[in-house]
Computed example of a mutant assay.
Amino acid sequence: MRSTPAESPLSKAAVSPSQGHDLSETDLYLWTQDQAALLRAKRRQDIDWHHLAEEMQRLRIEGRLDVSPSLRAWPETVLSKACHLGRVRAADETGLAEQACPPACPYTLAQILDDSVYPGALEPRFT
């Protein structure tokens, strides 16, 4: 017996994605649900493999930082690189000079990794 569209396990966005791969950046939860539905439906050609692999790796690393001694130094290692990349992207997206962004991350690693910390908005330093 064929299922009707109302009975389909795929979400509306998975059946007819209107936002394409951008959904992984605009609504992560909806994107993960759509990817799971596509996997269950064996629609391999429609899966966002690149973003799916990145998300799986991120989740795997986040879940193991506390129990893997070899990964404990990883956040500190990538923090300055990530901050530099953020400056470059922010300058590119806003048209401001890269020097208008903070030269270093304004938060400690402990603050970044603490889910209960919400630092709020920083005062912009436009020159």
Rank of each mutant, 00 (worst) to 15 (best):
M1H: 14
R2S: 13
P5E: 09
A6V: 15
A6F: 04
E7D: 15
S8K: 11
P9Q: 07
P9T: 08
L10F: 02
S11D: 05
S11A: 09
K12R: 14
A14M: 00
A14I: 03
A14W: 02
A14T: 06
S16H: 15
S16Y: 06
S16L: 11
S16E: 15
P17T: 02
S18G: 15
S18W: 04
H21L: 07
D22F: 06
L23F: 01
S24F: 05
S24Q: 03
E25M: 11
E25I: 07
T26V: 09
L28W: 09
Y29I: 12
Y29R: 14
L30P: 10
W31Q: 02
T32G: 09
T32F: 08
Q33T: 11
D34G: 13
A37N: 15
A37G: 15
A37R: 08
A37P: 13
L38Y: 00
L38C: 05
L39W: 01
L39S: 08
A41Q: 11
A41L: 03
Q45R: 14
D46W: 01
D46F: 00
I47A: 04
H50T: 06
H50K: 11
H51P: 06
H51D: 07
H51N: 14
H51W: 03
L52C: 00
L52S: 00
L52Q: 04
E54T: 08
E54I: 04
E55N: 09
E55R: 13
Q57H: 07
Q57M: 14
R58D: 08
L59H: 11
R60Y: 05
I61C: 05
I61N: 04
E62H: 13
E62F: 03
L65T: 05
D66E: 12
D66Y: 11
V67H: 12
S68A: 13
S68C: 14
P69H: 06
S70K: 12
L71F: 03
E76C: 10
E76H: 07
T77W: 01
V78S: 06
V78P: 09
L79T: 04
L79M: 13
S80Q: 07
H84Q: 09
L85N: 10
L85E: 06
G86M: 02
R87K: 14
R87W: 01
R89H: 06
A90Q: 03
A90C: 05
A90W: 02
A90V: 01
A91L: 02
A91Q: 02
D92I: 03
E93P: 02
E93S: 12
T94R: 01
T94I: 00
G95M: 00
L96R: 09
L96K: 04
L96M: 05
A97C: 05
Q99Y: 03
Q99C: 11
A100N: 12
C101H: 00
P103V: 00
A104V: 10
C105H: 01
P106C: 07
P106W: 05
P106V: 09
Y107A: 02
Y107W: 07
T108E: 06
L109Q: 12
A110D: 15
A110E: 14
A110I: 01
A110C: 09
D114S: 12
D115Y: 07
S116D: 14
V117P: 14
Y118C: 11
Y118M: 11
P119Y: 00
G120Q: 04
G120I: 02
G120N: 08
P124N: 10
P124K: 10
P124S: 07
P124C: 08
R125D: 12
R125H: 13
F126A: 10
